[in-house]
């Protein structure tokens, strides 16, 4: 069995049968074309994303993998309208959102088509709001009456395997794993077409990691598209249909999870695959990794 926190090696177990090598040809729920994002002004202006092109079909799970500072979170923030694109287009559920005003973004967000799960659930849940209040917030923002909103969040708790008694608790009174599942439930409350998860399991222990990944696997079967952002290839490999590798703001490799893991083309992807920890890490790979690092730095 592959440990959820470890990447399957090229010679490791076969990826799951449920993943599709050919993504659905249906209208993509997310289409990014030639996306550039810059931070800073004038002399401090620096490029964070360059010419990123990616599409996610309904029900598809795409993993975006890269090291810290590679632009993974910026990509997610650009899709959510939290940072402006310098060039390129972003289309969400068929709607070009690139030039959207704040009011248009608010309307789109209230529809709940795209949802986002933060890396740290403790900070992404208001410490003064109960779990019920946090879960109901997206519905209240859509104008759903409070009573109805509370009725709609109960089944969600079962879906993320949380007991109903947690509804009256504050985020600080529940465990880290429970908090992350609350964050996932909050993302699902508006029945989104696309859920972007930023390192959803990186702060969790193995048991909770397995549970969250299992919830995401079940979510795929309902037709929700998932974008899974992670620096850990292992977390993504077990669940993603496709993997996109982001390196220094550029997508250097995109392919099916099987291809990216078994036949990595870019040196950075090869380094990621060979660096993934396993229970049987071969010391002999060290030389190969050093060579790849040297190739990347030159």
């Amino acid at each position: 069995m592959t440990h959820p926190g470890s990447a399957p090696r090229a010679d490791g177990p076969e990826p799951q049968d449920t993943r599709r090598d050919d993504p659905s040809p249906a209208r993509p729920v997310l289409a990014i074309t030639g996306l550039d994002v810059h931070y800073g002004l004038r002399r401090r202006r620096r490029k964070v994303l360059h010419d990123v092109t990616l599409s996610v079909a309904p029900g598809e799970t795409v993993g975006i993998v890269g090291e810290t500072g590679s632009g993974k979170s910026t990509l997610a923030r650009a899709v959510l309208g939290l940072v402006r694109a310098s060039a390129g287009t972003v289309t969400v559920a068929g709607e070009d959102v690139t030039g959207h005003s704040e009011a248009k973004w608010r309307r789109l967000r209230r529809r709940g088509t795209v949802q986002y799960v933060f890396q740290d659930p403790l900070r992404s849940l208001d410490p003064d709001l109960t779990v019920a209040d946090s879960l109901a917030e997206p519905l209240l923002l859509r104008g759903v009456p409070r009573g109805e909103a509370l009725a709609r969040i109960r089944p969600l708790l079962e879906r993320v395997r949380l007991p109903g008694e947690l509804l009256d608790r504050l985020p600080g009174e529940i465990s880290g794993g429970q908090r992350q599942r609350v964050a996932v439930a909050r993302a699902l409350v508006t029945e989104p077409e696309l859920v972007i998860l930023d390192e959803p399991v990186s702060a969790l222990d193995s048991a909770n990691r397995v549970q969250v990944l299992q919830i995401l696997k079940e979510l795929r079967t309902t037709g929700v598209a998932i974008v899974l952002i992670s620096h850990d290839l292992g977390s993504v490999a077990g669940i993603a249909d496709r993997i996109a590798v982001l390196y220094r703001g550029e997508l250097v490799e995109t392919g099916t999870a099987r291809d990216v893991i078994r036949r990595p083309r870019h040196p950075y992807t090869r380094l990621l695959v060979s660096s993934a920890p396993t229970l049987h890490t071969a010391p002999a790979d060290r030389a190969e990794r050093a060579a790849l690092r040297a190739a990347l730095t030159t």
Binding site: L82, L108, R109, R110, F118, S124, D126, E137, P138, L141
Partner: peptide
């Protein structure tokens, strides 16, 4: 600047909310 405010904005919250 907290994440839960960002989460509320992502859910479509206005400044007033």
């Amino acid at each position: 600047r907290s994440q839960y405010v960002e989460a509320a904005l992502i859910a479509g919250a206005s400044v007033g909310w």
